[in-house]
Design a protein around this nucleic acid. Structure first.
Lengths: 227, 227
DNA sequence: CATCCTCAAACTGTCGACACTCGACAGTCG
DNA sequence: CGACTGTCGAGTGTCGACAGTTTGAGGATG
């Protein structure tokens, strides 16, 4: 209710928790908090100009997303990842998307195909004139579509959770792609495989695609770790 | 139940939040709250003899476990499942365990084998003289071992989440098995397949095993739905 | 008889306050 | 000199209160 720190006082009456969670997320992704760092509720509350209650809830939310961890009576800490954990995340993601494309192969409609094609087009666009963050977002969006179109909503939820963690790690290592055009083009084989409607071909394509990404990201993360 | 290494009783100072979460979970599994029912924070706080803050946190915890859902400014409601959602949960579980046994096939150690065999034995025991709840718990424990031994900790976490939901649904439909001895025996083929170390055989065995359970549970749930 | 409006009760979101715990640091005693 | 103890500040866990919102009952209206 008190004044915001800056001019953008868009009606705060609506859901402080989500706003705080978003701001915290952004700060985390920007690397403003060092991994393992302790986040004091009172301090954050002062920074945001609110009481501790919504801060606490927002922190719990981020905890459930795996971006923070909490210890009883000690509070919240920025989640630390090691390369092995990141590898697990990618491994699980591969497991999910494999399943998704197999399901999708048997039910791909013209609308889905059009949506995916459109998304590929978007990716090509941001590859030319988009920020690294945008490129990652559109990349994720394509994969999320695959999960959504699989028809298993529960799978999408888990995928979203994993995405939070992957984003977190990717933003930590800085940039992901050295040639942005690859972002879009590396997805084309997946799209082509889907069009064949052959589950095995789809699985192979996604296997290859994610395997590459996994190798790259985990490797870069491992390098960052030893510095 | 849990004893400290020195034999002292565990100090009952664990936060209220966890205690409340446990009680709420128990109440939910006992079916004391109807699906879709609104849970008023103040009322629960009175019931537990605490303030709303810990109740709120406990509720958020259960929300993250998928047992409650919340709507802004309206509060918490008991999660309702429909057969399709439950089917999704089983589908995803199958996806996870398939992956787990494939990984496990390539790394099964003698210790793991012994643990799994021991768990099968426990299952046989509770099949004879255990409650339905115990039988389910030991059943789950076996599958959890498969996930743990796969080596992917992140996978285990997702499995745990799914388990909460499956337990919830299973307890809703009352009893799961009509012949308790099947509980243990239906797992034997999975164990046998693992011993061959053949990923394909393992996948096939778990496919069959979970497929049966899925069919059964979802079917029973669907019946309950239309009543 | 159905519909809309009013209003009070109930409830959630948020706040500030207090008690208790944890960790650090310094002082004390062997 | 080292181990133990008391104290202090920082921070979390919990509480009661207030304000604004939602809900549902009941009356007014067409």
């Amino acid at each position: 209710m008190t004044t915001t720190t800056r001019g953008f006082a868009t009606i705060q009456q609506r859901d402080l928790v989500n706003q705080i969670a978003d701001m915290l997320t952004e700060a985390l992704l920007k690397g403003e908090f060092a991994p393992g760092m302790h986040l004091a509720e009172a301090q954050l509350a002062r920074d945001f100009g609110v009481s501790r209650a919504p801060v606490r809830e927002a922190a719990r939310l981020l905890e459930s997303r795996g971006m923070l961890v909490s210890q009883p009576r000690r509070g919240f800490f920025v989640r630390t990842f090691n390369a092995a954990e990141l590898d697990d995340v990618y491994d699980l993601r591969l497991c999910l998307e494999r399943h998704a494309v197999r399901l999708l192969a048997g039910k791909l409609t013209a609308e889905m195909e059009a949506s995916l094609d459109a998304q590929l087009e978007t990716m090509r666009r941001v590859a030319r004139d988009g920020t690294a963050v945008q490129q990652i977002e559109e990349d994720v969006a394509f994969h999320r579509m695959l999960c959504e179109f699989s028809g298993n909503q529960r799978l999408v939820r888990v995928f979203d959770e994993l995405c939070h963690e992957m984003r977190f790690c990717i933003l930590l290592i800085g940039q992901l792609y050295d040639d942005p055009t690859q972002v879009a083009e590396s997805h084309q084989p997946v799209m082509d495989a889907l069009r064949t409607r052959d589950p095995d071909a789809c699985e192979a394509a996604i296997d290859y695609h994610i395997g590459i990404a996994q190798q790259r990201v985990v490797e870069m993360f491992r390098e960052r770790e030893t510095s």
